[in-house]
Design a protein around this nucleic acid. Structure first.
Lengths: 254, 254
DNA sequence: CGTCGCTTTGATTAATGTCAATAGAGGTGG
DNA sequence: CCACCTCTATTGACATTAATCAAAGCGACG
């Protein structure tokens, strides 16, 4: 699996095995899964065409770096398929995953000079890439875009605040329960389902929850033994007792 | 000290000892410390007058609740003086402070139906309170306001992500060092000063850093013994060795 | 069939939380 | 002005959680 090779090639602007990059995105709008969410849904056909002309449509395999913390924040991404991991890394290797995003998400929102986190593909990811400077002029003519971005930013802020509560005050068991409930509700499917598909590995879950791989594994095993969940496969978990899991996640049990 | 009395009275809309509330804010704009930051600075005199007419000018003593988590998010606040603590609380008493804000800060940004956190005054706080519905119409006519809010939200998001890294991956010592450096740079004064004035108590620091009061106290004592800081008074800390403190905060030492 | 990467499990250690007591600071009233 | 009271912070002894270190299991893939 030569995925860092792919990541390096993408970062360097060179050809990536398994990747597709096209100069304009418009031809994909008709079939895009993000067509009716977030940014694109706010626009009329004309506006959408303009937006698409400003975008570059891309598809990348697993393990590519879409943007790297500290690099100039030239781009802005709208994910149309797949899952992206956002993380902050320290020099000594410690990593905090600050979020997982999928269809419809904007990445690189902040108008900062440099990216404040690294974005990595967890599976095959298709997305539209915008040039930040080119987009600014479009915003002036379509204020609704700025409204959508503001709404998205506020939503992300609320999620971040919930995660601060989790990281600062919840023990491992509660963190895992919260994670499973959140993931089963917000992602993979519209309404909560028993089956939770986790595109990330245990290490990513650990880095998201501020734990170690071992603790994540032990907690999952404990939950399985208590018949709260079933581990169908490493990345497929079934929620058996949602009510109890929710109670644990909100700290209502001991 | 009857401060929860004051909080209860403010929440109930009744008179608060030490509080001043006026229907319009315009007469205070000339002397407002937030006049040339954030929202208000973006507007011309005409726009500012309109904005001020939509606002209610308030002053509250220490310990009042400006907004409570879970209540309908009817208002939106622009702080012009003092410090406000933002926190999320769990049923069993666990608390996570998600931020401290002061002059120029917007509180209640998210267009959500209900507040996602509780805002409490830490000292005497003066602020402008806006009606969310009344403000929306103003936004349509002054798109620059929405731009400012978006910039503010993105900035807060970046801070929240940094705090996630702190809560998820830094040990107590690094958390305290980061906190002191951040507070000395971002608040109290424009450029970093040796003297750090902390308007919050140890318990608030602990709840902000995901620690206990005892651990905060012990770490501060240890730093004092290592001559990194001096504790002039409980709320006045002098930074003696900023370089080392910064290194500790970023995880560069062991 | 063997190797590599990821996950699980076990034994031990270290960091931080909990419980308890003491020490200061600030305010109040005699 | 001083004694007292209360609230906050500090310090100490001990308990507990989760991290670390180490090894084995499992699956995918060549």
């Amino acid at each position: 699996m030569l995925w860092h090779d792919a990541a390096a090639r993408y970062a360097a602007g060179g050809p990536v095995p398994g990747a597709a990059i096209e100069r304009t995105a418009s031809m994909h709008c008709g079939t895009c899964a993000a067509r009716h969410v977030g940014l694109c849904d706010a626009l009329s056909a004309d506006g959408l065409a303009e937006l698409a002309d400003a975008a570059c449509w891309c598809s990348l395999p697993r393990g590519c770096i879409l943007m790297a913390e500290g690099e100039p924040g030239a781009h802005f991404i709208n994910v149309s398929h797949g899952t992206v991991r956002l993380s902050k890394d320290m020099q000594d290797g410690r990593r905090q995953v600050i979020g997982f995003v999928s269809t419809g998400a904007f990445v690189g929102l902040g108008a900062e000079a440099r990216y404040s986190f690294t974005a990595t593909t967890l599976d095959e990811v298709r997305f539209c890439r915008f040039d930040r400077t080119g987009l600014r002029e479009l915003f002036l003519r379509y204020p609704v875009l700025e409204q959508r971005l503001l709404a998205a930013a506020c939503n992300e802020l609320a999620l971040a605040q919930g995660q601060m509560l989790l990281l600062g005050r919840k023990p491992a068991r509660e963190r895992l329960a919260t994670f499973l409930i959140d993931w089963s509700s917000n992602f993979s499917n519209r309404e909560p389902t028993a089956l939770v598909v986790l595109p990330m590995c245990r290490g990513d879950i650990a880095d998201y929850l501020g734990l170690t791989i071992e603790t994540v594994s032990r907690c999952l095993t404990a939950m399985r033994k208590q018949c709260l969940i079933a581990i169908d496969a490493e990345h497929n978990i079934s929620i058996i007792d949602r009510t109890t899991l929710q109670a644990i996640g909100s700290g209502a049990t001991n």
